[in-house]
Design a protein around this nucleic acid. Sequence first.
DNA 1: TTGGAAAGTCAACAAGGCTGACATAAAATC
DNA 2: GATTTTATGTCAGCCTTGTTGACTTTCCAA
Lengths: 170, 170
Amino acid sequence: MSQHGGLRGPSGETLLFLTDEQLKKGIEAMFFAYRGFTADPDRILENYAYGRAHHRALHFINRSPGTTVNNLLSILGVTKQSLNRVLRTLIEDGLVESRVGRRDKRERNLHLTAKGADLEKDLSEAQRNRMRTAFRTAGPEAVSGFRQVLEAMMDAEMRRQYNTLTDAGS
Amino acid sequence: MSQHGGLRGPSGETLLFLTDEQLKKGIEAMFFAYRGFTADPDRILENYAYGRAHHRALHFINRSPGTTVNNLLSILGVTKQSLNRVLRTLIEDGLVESRVGRRDKRERNLHLTAKGADLEKDLSEAQRNRMRTAFRTAGPEAVSGFRQVLEAMMDAEMRRQYNTLTDAGS
DNA sequence: TTGGAAAGTCAACAAGGCTGACATAAAATC
DNA sequence: GATTTTATGTCAGCCTTGTTGACTTTCCAA
């Protein structure tokens, strides 16, 4: 992380971008950007009886087919009662299939049905389109910085989860 | 994590970082990072009868002292009933002062009291500390990219709001 | 065989979104 | 001056999504 962007103080450390004002701009950027980030899927979900919680469940089940309820819980960071309510409606509506575990029959392995995969694709595409446009607008160097800062902003446990998800990709 | 330096195609345009996998990693980065982003203030708020909505109100009143209710509504993107509930408790508890407008007496100009400024400072400091650490870890170039991507991710109207907030800063 | 982990369920509650209806005061307009 | 529009506040009720606590069922493993 090199030689430009930040002004350097007498001892060579980077200055300037650590002013409270810069930090507040970063905070506000997160706030407004997150609104944009969720806006498109939210619009689609209005047509269903689903909310953001359902979207998140669909995303991560799609991401890790066969994942267990417990694993999903630790990724989503909610209580099992809260997740269960969401999962139950998705299963009742035929978007998610819950299979009894083969090795451990206490576990449930979660999979999307064709119907569930359809909705997930719709939501995912809307969200990816915005991300793609933002990435294109900002350029590859900016994208790299974006991911570096976000990763540094996570709690250690979340960073582990984040890096575990399909390492294949990046 | 590799290459987002961005490989270049034959005509010089940037490739590679637009794969669905890269986009999904971006989406997941936003999800996990936002959790970290809100974690510290949330912990502080547990000691009060306040939630994230109160934090947001305090933040933007602090940011634009004397702002009107209407202006706050458009920044926060919620209904007046929802904001009013939050604002009412903050005023009752003596954290926010609501003054009748001088030019237009229908308006209310909102200010933090000393008590309100204290809590705002606590919350803000916790959030800035995480942001500062993330910025330091990632470096100035990354910070620039972070802000570029987030800005590109906002809706046009939010971007206007974002840029309007104390342009002095950036 | 028994303890405990995984999962599901029920009940109750809270925060913080939402809509709709209505009240008031003040500004703006006709 | 009368009327309309705007800014704000408030009441009532609903929804989603989070919480805690208590309890049951299943079943792996010591």
